[in-house]
Amino acid sequence: MTLQTTTTVAERTWARYTPQQRWKRFATMLVVAAAVVWAVESIDIIWPWVWDAPAQVGDLFGRMVPPDVSNLQAILWALVETLNIATIATFVAVFVSLPIAYIAAQNTTPNRFTLWLGRFILVSSRSVNTLIWALLFVAIFGPGVLAGIIAIMFRSIGFLGKLLGEAIEEIDRRPVEALEATGASRAKVVLYAIVPQVIPTFFAVSVLRWDINLRESTVLGLVGAGGIGVILQGAIDTLAWQTVATILLAIIALVILGEALAAWLRKKVI
């Protein structure tokens, strides 16, 4: 009886499918429209400023031309510092994230407690933005590169650990079984059956995160955590717009070069 009832209901729903879809679309549109109206109406905006914005932005760009390269040496040095922050932080984070990925993966974690511990570490690292981490570490260690490196590290651990943990969960179980059958200890099974399977992901994810970290390192200086952002903030504060332009161009160059290098590494290694 029950089976029959569900069938008829399902049939009826099926017959109504098109109108329901139309209704759904209409409702979605309505929600979007309502959200926009609400957002526009209640947002704390001084409208004359908005109408003035294009002119202001144009004016700002006007003041940036031509870029001033007299500080080029300092800027290049800051770029190197930025690169170092990203690289050191990624390098350390990769190794710290390995054991966390191991305990956060369902098939390798020793027990339920470690599983939840691993996941907790990953989630808290991932949901706090690098800049917020940087704010915290600048408050602790004072302004400088060290705070920046630690901030980037803290944020990267969650990202790397999550993706590596997923890679561990997706491995082929069969070699693991085979090596367990030879009487190899757990640590050796990990070394021979799990590590080789995870290595491609490990490289890909590390390179990807390095690329992201390079971008993030460019802004650390805005909260005092080292890198090119420090000079940028200084130039903006002194209204040296032509220097700002040079710094921006330098950042573009760094980011594009980093992306190219990352792409090359990905192709070469994997």
Binding site: I45, W49, D52, A53, V57, L60, L131, V219, L232, I256
Partner: peptide, 27 residues
């Protein structure tokens, strides 16, 4: 160009251009 800059850098420029507040954020 839009992808090269971290949003925070863009934000700082817009803040300078149009002042503190949500407009800079939206842009």
């Amino acid at each position: 160009l839009a992808r090269s800059f971290h949003p925070v850098i863009v934000a700082i420029l817009f803040v300078k251009a149009v002042g503190f507040g949500p407009v800079a954020g939206i842009l």
